[in-house]
Amino acid sequence: LAETGRPPWVNRVLVIDTKPSVQRRRLQDRGLDPATIERLLAIQASPALRRACADDILENTGSLQALAEGVRALHARYRALAMTP
């Protein structure tokens, strides 16, 4: 969506973002080599572009529990929005 634009049928865009250093570490923890990691990061939209197209942003820099709490809160918000005429 960041690269091609938001289609008219998409009501909201959620970006779950983290620092590039955290992305690199997580990819390395999955067994990817540094060259592959850099290629993967290079083909992604920039953080600024991803954030610019987002209606909501969750920071994924803390614990898995903190992320889950943020997801639950947004899920409740999205359900409420879906019920609004």
Results as ranks from 00 to 15, higher is better:
residue 1 L to C: 13
residue 2 A to M: 08
residue 2 A to D: 01
residue 3 E to M: 14
residue 4 T to Y: 08
residue 5 G to L: 05
residue 5 G to V: 03
residue 6 R to L: 10
residue 7 P to W: 06
residue 8 P to Y: 07
residue 8 P to F: 05
residue 8 P to T: 06
residue 9 W to V: 03
residue 10 V to H: 07
residue 10 V to C: 13
residue 10 V to F: 07
residue 11 N to I: 02
residue 11 N to G: 15
residue 12 R to M: 12
residue 13 V to D: 01
residue 13 V to I: 13
residue 15 V to M: 04
residue 15 V to T: 00
residue 15 V to I: 08
residue 16 I to R: 00
residue 19 K to T: 12
residue 19 K to P: 05
residue 21 S to P: 00
residue 21 S to D: 14
residue 22 V to F: 12
residue 24 R to V: 04
residue 24 R to Q: 11
residue 24 R to E: 07
residue 25 R to T: 08
residue 25 R to N: 12
residue 25 R to F: 06
residue 26 R to S: 05
residue 26 R to Q: 10
residue 26 R to E: 06
residue 27 L to E: 00
residue 27 L to Y: 00
residue 28 Q to Y: 10
residue 29 D to K: 10
residue 29 D to T: 07
residue 30 R to L: 11
residue 30 R to Q: 15
residue 31 G to E: 03
residue 31 G to W: 02
residue 31 G to D: 04
residue 31 G to R: 05
residue 33 D to R: 14
residue 33 D to I: 04
residue 33 D to F: 08
residue 33 D to H: 12
residue 35 A to L: 13
residue 36 T to A: 15
residue 37 I to G: 02
residue 38 E to F: 09
residue 39 R to D: 15
residue 39 R to P: 00
residue 41 L to G: 04
residue 41 L to K: 04
residue 41 L to E: 14
residue 42 A to S: 15
residue 42 A to N: 12
residue 43 I to A: 13
residue 43 I to N: 10
residue 44 Q to E: 12
residue 45 A to H: 02
residue 45 A to G: 04
residue 45 A to K: 02
residue 45 A to M: 05
residue 46 S to Y: 05
residue 47 P to C: 08
residue 47 P to F: 01
residue 48 A to D: 12
residue 49 L to I: 08
residue 50 R to L: 08
residue 51 R to K: 13
residue 51 R to N: 09
residue 51 R to T: 03
residue 51 R to I: 05
residue 52 A to V: 09
residue 52 A to K: 11
residue 53 C to H: 06
residue 53 C to E: 04
residue 54 A to N: 02
residue 54 A to K: 01
residue 55 D to P: 01
residue 55 D to V: 05
residue 55 D to G: 07
residue 55 D to S: 09
residue 55 D to K: 10
residue 56 D to S: 06
residue 56 D to P: 00
residue 56 D to R: 10
residue 57 I to N: 00
residue 58 L to M: 07
residue 59 E to P: 01
residue 59 E to D: 15
residue 59 E to S: 10
residue 59 E to M: 13
residue 60 N to M: 04
residue 60 N to W: 00
residue 61 T to S: 11
residue 62 G to N: 07
residue 62 G to Y: 04
residue 62 G to H: 04
residue 62 G to K: 03
residue 63 S to V: 05
residue 64 L to K: 11
residue 65 Q to F: 03
residue 65 Q to A: 15
residue 66 A to H: 09
residue 66 A to Q: 14
residue 67 L to A: 06
residue 68 A to L: 05
residue 68 A to W: 00
residue 69 E to N: 13
residue 70 G to T: 02
residue 71 V to A: 12
residue 74 L to C: 08
residue 74 L to F: 04
residue 75 H to C: 15
residue 75 H to A: 15
residue 75 H to K: 15
residue 75 H to M: 12
residue 76 A to N: 13
residue 76 A to G: 10
residue 76 A to E: 15
residue 77 R to M: 11
residue 80 A to D: 14
residue 80 A to T: 09
residue 80 A to L: 11
residue 81 L to K: 11
residue 81 L to C: 07
residue 81 L to D: 11
residue 82 A to I: 05
residue 82 A to V: 06
residue 83 M to V: 09
residue 84 T to L: 15
residue 85 P to A: 14
residue 85 P to S: 11
